[in-house]
Design a protein around this nucleic acid. Structure first.
Lengths: 337, 337
DNA sequence: CTGTTAGCGCTTTCAA
DNA sequence: TTGAAAGCGCTAACAG
């Protein structure tokens, strides 16, 4: 049997409260401190966190609910978030939604059931309803990367619309006019689509329907199928903007399969600076989201929210994402167009 | 305040024991069962898992300690393991070791501290010492994908040596003789290296030192640097076997950077059928590990071990990994060689 | 600063 | 089947 605080009492002759106080960083007479420390070492005592949680009503565990853990994007986010939280004594309970909104709701419930202190979430859903169980249980949630239709929650994203607009500006600046976009109807996908539209409008370039591909959720499949469709067009686009990492993967699969050269035949801009863009040839031109900052800033806000409750208003952090030039965009002669 | 079992008692007039029994699936008179169910619904009662854990000494949480969560390989493993565990009411606490053995040890300690019921682990370390805290606390661990130097633990891997041997056989069968290998000194990397050696020996082909690249730990960097070195050789290899996913990525980066064609200039075989090998051109020929089976089989054994303790001997499951042909290996004329 | 005491919400004997 | 009572190991008043 593992040693308990009572064993420490037997060993030191001190009261439980004194020992507990020591364990929680309180002031204890130096002499007693030493006694306790010796006993702890001798008995190899480790506080029972379950018993502690029962009293404090804190589990020191954060739920991480993520749309798709199999994505490299999630892995990197997870890496940074868990590093931040572990350092502060928090564990992270992972819940994968596998691109299913039903599962997403289920995961929130699971977290509530498991009594996490807070939830970090990358959501597919846009309607905040799925967070109701957490709200009811008084468990705060911070949204990472994806917003939802509610300003009641803290969230950390990039300025999606603006970043996407800059990316489209870039394509236009390289002389492209027939620019297609592949996006999802998730919040992020939609914002990025809006940025694309804004840029095109600003430039006075019309956007035929056939250049707009979308689906409910971002996925490799969306990218693949959309690109295949775009390639079949008579006046196929000279450039494509993909609004998500997985979508880019799908697009590249289609291009490779069809033997279409990039950027000779089709130019490409994607989102997210992960491993693929570094491994691909040509190097992908992309919008680089600050992954570590998204994760740590989100975790920071969540812990603060846990500590301080609703004493401060919902935080809506929007970070800057830079466009990084690779070699996947071709400059074409505007006059020839 | 959330409802407790006492509120249910007040509502139903029944004893605590009866209610507890109901909650745990025991036999309760039909009439009482209904009363309880009504009260639960009315009060929106959820059992306090912390209190339950304090008594049962089970947290229903599994620690997942992984060498590198940022890797797509880990993400996929995580996806399958978490699906399996969630279905059975278990949560998963994620601990990333970031390729650091020190961190790996730290993570085991963290899991013990958090009182997980069991540990699922993808380790970098080979010496079982780091598991000591878990052993001492009576917390079982199952090793996934990577073995360690101890047969006291359950583990689920593929037959690394054999798979690697078959891959090398394939290269030899395609006419290659100058075959390099890039591996780590981790258990898996070493096993795969052994398979390579066995194949080469069997074929009577000598292995010059310069064709063997290795480092302590598998990484993209290892792949990149090794390939750069191999490319500088006068009699550079016509084929390369990489013993891990990240290593393959690094190799491909080097090839792209140097403008070396695959498979025209260098043929390549890697491990792990993840998204990138499918997106790349050419499609990588690879040894496909059965990811889902590794994860779910590992989780299954772990839960069984938690339930049944040491009533059965350590399980050492070795799954079959098939070689999948892509287009990254060139057939060369043996006579010309 | 220290110790006594009363719970946290649940499971689990044990007797009825 | 049911219920009373005794903890699980800890924290947090409170009084000293």
């Amino acid at each position: 049997m593992a040693a308990t605080i009572k064993d420490i009492r037997a060993e030191t002759g001190l009261g439980l409260a004194t020992i507990s106080k020591y364990l929680n960083g309180g002031n204890v007479r130096n002499e007693n401190r030493q006694k306790i420390e010796e006993a702890i070492k001798k008995l190899d005592y480790h506080p029972n966190v379950t018993a502690r949680s029962l009293v404090t009503k804190r589990t020191r565990t954060i739920g991480f609910v993520v749309n798709n853990i199999a994505s490299n994007f999630s892995g990197v986010l997870l890496q940074h978030a868990s590093a931040y939280l572990h350092e502060r004594g928090y564990g992270m309970m992972i819940c994968d939604s596998s691109l299913s909104e039903r599962q997403e709701e289920e995961n929130i419930r699971f977290c509530v059931e498991k009594q996490v202190d807070g939830i970090l979430m990358v959501s597919s859903a846009v309607d905040p309803g799925f967070l109701a169980p957490a709200v009811k249980a008084g468990i705060p949630a911070v949204l990472l990367d994806r917003e939802i239709k509610s300003d009641a929650f803290d969230c950390v994203t990039i300025d999606n619309s603006n970043a996407s607009e800059r990316a489209t500006d870039y394509l236009l600046g390289c002389g492209h006019r027939r620019i297609a976009v592949i996006h999802s109807e998730e919040y992020t996908g939609n914002e990025r689509f809006m940025g694309y539209l804004a840029s095109m409008k600003k430039a006075g370039v019309s956007v035929p329907d056939k250049y707009v591909c979308s689906a409910h959720i971002h996925s490799t499949e969306l990218g693949y199928k959309s690109m295949m469709k775009l390639l079949k067009l008579k006046d196929r686009p000279t450039a494509v903007l993909t609004t998500n990492y997985e979508v880019s993967l799908g697009v590249i699969m289609a291009l490779n399969e069809q033997g279409i050269g990039c950027p000779e035949d089709v130019s490409l801009i994607g989102f997210d600076e992960l491993i693929l863009p570094m491994v691909m040839r040509p190097k992908l031109t992309l919008v680089a989201q600050p992954m570590e900052e998204i994760a740590s800033e989100g975790a920071r806000i969540l812990l603060k929210r846990i500590e301080e409750g609703n004493s401060f208003p919902p935080q809506r952090v929007s970070l800057y994402a830079a466009l990084k030039e690779g070699e996947s965009v071709r400059r074409i002669d505007v006059l020839k167009n």
